[in-house]
Design a protein around this nucleic acid. Structure first.
Lengths: 173, 173
DNA sequence: TTGGAAAGTCAACAAGGCTGACATAAAATG
DNA sequence: CATTTTATGTCAGCCTTGTTGACTTTCCAA
């Protein structure tokens, strides 16, 4: 039997576990998500502010690092913004020498994106700050909680996004 | 012994459970958080777009509903924005008859905020959309996962925010 | 060879953050 | 009572990051 949040759990006569989800309990989850996301972005935001970059730059650096050589179109799908919006961010990163854009070998229309050493350095700084908080939260909550955390987050994604997320997961590890 | 994400879990000779958190595993959590938050806001965003309101209006409606009669200052602390930013949103909500601002009885400097019937109606529509997704995610993941989800989110908040969050939880329920 | 995809650019706009400055009313304090 | 502090509102101006629409260049593929 589950100890935590036992108020949500009921076991039927057939031994099935059901969830009794009141609007109140759902609201707690909604608010937890809101406040936690603020914490989640707080540390990188502080670093970015000093460099006159924003969250959009962080996201671009993150996914380029994670998927070196990705195309602009690919990045567009991951980030879920318009190409004009991404282009503005990408242009400043390229101008500042953090990102390199190489014309595709097979398809010369495509641009493949890579982090420069300078770009990789900033990405490391940003993601290390974010990982530190995530690590602390994971340690505080414990392995069982972490598994649940990931399960609920996955279930909360849009179907198409979840498919992308899962294929990303497969690709790297 | 925990089945899910068993790769993160190790048991010592003294029976303690430890977490082995690789950067890779932390990154998965970070990306899950990013993609899940998109899903989390997607449904209300669609409703708001038709009304030429934004996420900021939703947040204001949510916390006014949750805490009827709250003061502007109170709301400011919860939302973590400047009064100028909140004021712009609040003004439009008041002009459109969704929110009512009453001068404080005890302290006449304070404005106490209430949802009108119209405001409550929109809030219900927005939060029902958001709850529906949360409910589906909770059901899909199961009660144990939900408990873990909440634990990790709480651990991820800034200390001050967590205190606010927890006192909100106590107050209502 | 022609259609369409990929990429980039320009312009214009909006939401929603921010800072700074200032006004007003009322409470709190000496 | 005089002064200071607090709560709120408002004006102006700025930035980031999202949007749409129109248009160009390149170049793959049917």
């Amino acid at each position: 039997m589950i100890k935590q949040r036992a108020d949500m759990v009921e076991t039927t006569t057939r031994g099935e576990t059901l969830l009794f989800l009141t609007d109140e309990q759902l609201r707690k989850g909604i608010e937890a998500m809101f406040f936690a996301y603020r914490g989640f972005t707080a540390d990188p935001d502080r670093i970015l502010a000093d460099l006159s970059y924003g969250r959009a730059h962080h996201r671009a650096l993150h996914f380029i690092n994670r998927n070196q050589g990705t195309t602009v179109n690919n990045l567009l799908k991951l980030l879920g913004v318009t190409k004009q919006s991404l282009n503005r961010v990408l242009r400043s990163l390229i101008e500042d020498g953090l990102v390199e854009s190489r014309v595709g070998l097979k398809d010369k229309r495509e641009r493949h994106l890579y982090l420069t050493e300078k770009g990789a350095e900033l990405e490391r700084q940003l993601s290390e700050a974010q990982r530190a908080r995530m690590r602390a939260a994971y340690r505080a909550a414990g392995p069982q909680a972490v598994a649940g955390f990931r399960q609920v987050l996955e279930a909360m994604m849009d179907d198409k996004i979840r498919a992308q997320y899962l294929s990303l997961m497969d690709a790297n590890s």
